[in-house]
Each structure stands twice: as structure tokens, then as C-alpha cells.
């Protein structure tokens, strides 16, 4: 269960505005990436975001490039989860693989505004906003296992260690 303050964005937020192409082949730490998070979408985000905040967006969040830094920079900025009507499939995978929880609220997110507070109950699959509950389907068990291990790399390490004689 997490509760956080909302940063609200529209449909089709692409990975270029989340993490610009000019940075993609520069070696950066996750903390450095976070300084550029959402730079071309909302210049106030990187400075204003607080640990535990939640991004809420419309459809097709993270469309465009496969760059994983789009998920890394959001996670490193302290964002606890991203709620969207839908996600681009590569961003969805990258987020899980970086240990960033993603919630697909297909029924819509238009009722949620910037600076609102939302609560997410991952076990029950419920988002609570202004006393109203909105259901979302829980992640498949294969995907949840990766998220629960903190991302794909720790998940693979654990799996490989388990198969060692």
C-alpha cells in the first residue's frame, strides 16, 4: 500500500520528453538521470518531486524509444509508482525491470488532478482517490515476481543462484 501526491500528465507522454535523446548515450548515474527526468515535458518536475510522489497520466505513457533510462530516471527521482490509462509495452517492461511499479487504470485517470493524493493497494488492485475506489487488474505472477525482487537484474541473480548446485 502506498500513498502519494500526484504529478498529472496527458496522453502519449513519450520517452524523448521523459529522458531526452541527447543524454541517452552519456554514461550517467541514476541520480544524474533523475536531474533530467521529464525535462522537456515539465521543467518543474525534477526540482519539485518528492520521494513517494506518484505520476498519473493518460493513455500510452512512455511511448517511443526503448530507452530504459526513461524508467530509471523516474524511479531515481523518488516516484513510487506510475498510474496510466495504458503504457507503451517497452516502457511497461522497463519499469518492471527497474523495480518501478506501474498501474494500468484502463477505466480512466481524468478525475485525478495535480497535487491530489492517491492511494494504491497493489494486493487488492485498488486505487483510492477522494474516497472513491477504482479497480485495476493485478500484474501476472511472472511479472510480479520481477517487481517483488526489485527489478530484473536482482531477479535473474536470484534465479541463477537458485539453480547452482
Amino acid at each position: 500500500m502506498i500513498e502519494g501526491k500526484v504529478w498529472k500528465y496527458a496522453d502519449d507522454v513519450n520517452t524523448d520528453v521523459i529522458f531526452a535523446g541527447k543524454y541517452t548515450y552519456k554514461p550517467m548515474t541514476a541520480a544524474e538521470m533523475a536531474e533530467h527526468a521529464l525535462e522537456d515535458l515539465d521543467p518543474t518536475f525534477a526540482k519539485g518531486v518528492k520521494p513517494g510522489d506518484i505520476i498519473v497520466a493518460g493513455a500510452n505513457f512512455g511511448c517511443g524509444s526503448s530507452r530504459e533510462q526513461a524508467a530509471t530516471c523516474v524511479k531515481a527521482s523518488g516516484v513510487a509508482a506510475v498510474i496510466a490509462v495504458s503504457f507503451s509495452r517497452i516502457f511497461f517492461r522497463n519499469a518492471i525491470n527497474e523495480g518501478l511499479p506501474v498501474v494500468e487504470l484502463a477505466s480512466g485517470t481524468s478525475m485525478i488532478a495535480k497535487d491530489d493524493t492517491v492511494k494504491i493497494d497493489f494486493d487488492k488492485g485498488v486505487v483510492t482517490h477522494k474516497g472513491k475506489e477504482y479497480r485495476f487488474p493485478p500484474l501476472p505472477k511472472e511479472v510480479l515476481a520481477i517487481l517483488n525482487d526489485g527489478g530484473l537484474i536482482p531477479h535473474v541473480k536470484k534465479a541463477l543462484a537458485a539453480t547452482k548446485p
Binding site: S66, E68, I90, R93, N94, N97, E98, L152, I153, V156
Partner: peptide, 8 residues
């Protein structure tokens, strides 16, 4: 796919 997936 993403970079972590390629590493995996």
C-alpha cells in the same frame, strides 16, 4: 526490449 532485458 530494454537494456536490462538484453543484459539478462
Amino acid at each position: 526490449v530494454g537494456r536490462s532485458e538484453m543484459a539478462a
